[in-house]
Nucleic acid binder design. Structure first.
Lengths: 205, 205
DNA sequence: GTCTATACAACGATAGAC
DNA sequence: GTCTATCGTTGTATAGAC
């Protein structure tokens, strides 16, 4: 996990602080960490502000409240559906399943799995989060991806691909089952990709 | 979702009730509902007691606290690993994947999906719950199941089967993606079972 | 009369808002 | 920093069962 957000400092001593930009960014980074570790309910405004090295009142000042901070910090995922689609569609459709597994694992591993865990942990009672998740994965990613390789049952195929990837994420990042939680990406890719490929282009009946 | 457990009579006087009431059972039923809807943190003792039509102090009186109530209401799953194993192992190993998918969907559909959702939502900051989940599924169910059909990479296979089923559960019960959330069980079985079967007995490299 | 299930009030902690 | 709301929990009085 990344370490504390605002390094003690020495590097921005002189003169007046350059306005709020630093504080806002520090709060965003701290919020990603704390929400990832604690989930929405467990993360307190004071803990986030503390990690950012500012007063808790700054959360209200810069974001208007805990909800808004969560939306900006966590729901704003570290990759856009657009860019993700471009990466995945670049190559042989027969290898799409492989690219999907590898790309998702690579991105989420780079986040320490924290963003995935934060999302899952925060779906609780927060229909807004569930809705955002649904939009992102089904409409934004898999829903766009599937029509490029399949003609029938597109929604079902998109659901199944999402289910498999979410399941892998749950096992690797949230529940931390071994060996999947610790093995290298390529082992998982080799094991899972054929199943994704079947969901994409195989017969489902 | 089922409605309130004890009809509200407006007659909540102090003191012992006339015979026939079962406050303990009412609290258990209400707790399953509320934990399912809100997760562990979101579910308040007062909300649970309110739905059961009794005072919040009853939770402490009958269970000793919120933690213990959660344990009895949610972690006490509606089926034992033992009985589950017997059901799944009864039949042709070549159809095991199919039986796994059908059995899990049938059981969880019967619970309104609430128990699954409660578990997932409560894995949050509660390592104890995650650990119980891990034990139940990996050691208690899939870990026992896989060795009967596979010789190599048993742990990996068990993880992958668990991942696929958890993913389906997430999509059907928690995130509620369509069409998987609403379609009949057999459609899902037909679509998913071959992939489970590959995880059980296929080549993973 | 005794036991116990129950409701109500209040406590201490802690959260987010302002 | 203060305010207010709400949480889980505890103490206690009371109504009914036995």
């Amino acid at each position: 996990m990344t370490t504390s957000v605002r390094q003690d400092d020495g590097d921005r001593r002189r003169g007046r602080r350059p306005g709020g930009t630093d504080t806002r960014a520090a709060l965003l980074a701290a919020a990603r960490e704390v929400f990832s570790e604690q989930g929405y309910d467990g993360a307190t405004v004071r803990a986030i502000a503390g990690r950012a090295g500012v007063d808790a009142a700054m959360v209200n000042h810069w974001f208007g409240g805990k909800d808004a901070l969560f939306g900006e910090a966590v729901l704003r995922l570290p990759f856009s559906p657009k860019e993700l689609l471009a990466t995945l569609l670049d190559g042989d459709p027969a290898d799409l399943g492989e690219r999907i597994v590898r790309t998702f694992l690579t991105r989420w591993d780079a986040q320490d799995g924290g963003v995935f865990a934060a999302l899952v942990r925060s779906v609780a009672g927060h229909e807004q989060v569930a809705h955002a998740l649904r939009d992102f994965f089904i409409r934004g990613v898999f829903g766009q991806l599937v029509p490029t390789v399949a003609d029938d049952r597109r929604e079902l195929r998109a659901n199944l691909v999402a289910a498999q990837m979410i399941g892998i994420g749950m096992v690797r990042y949230v529940a931390k089952f071994e060996p999947v939680a610790s093995t290298d990406i390529e082992t998982v890719v080799t094991a899972v990709a054929p199943n994704i490929q079947r969901y994409l282009t195989g017969r489902l009946d």
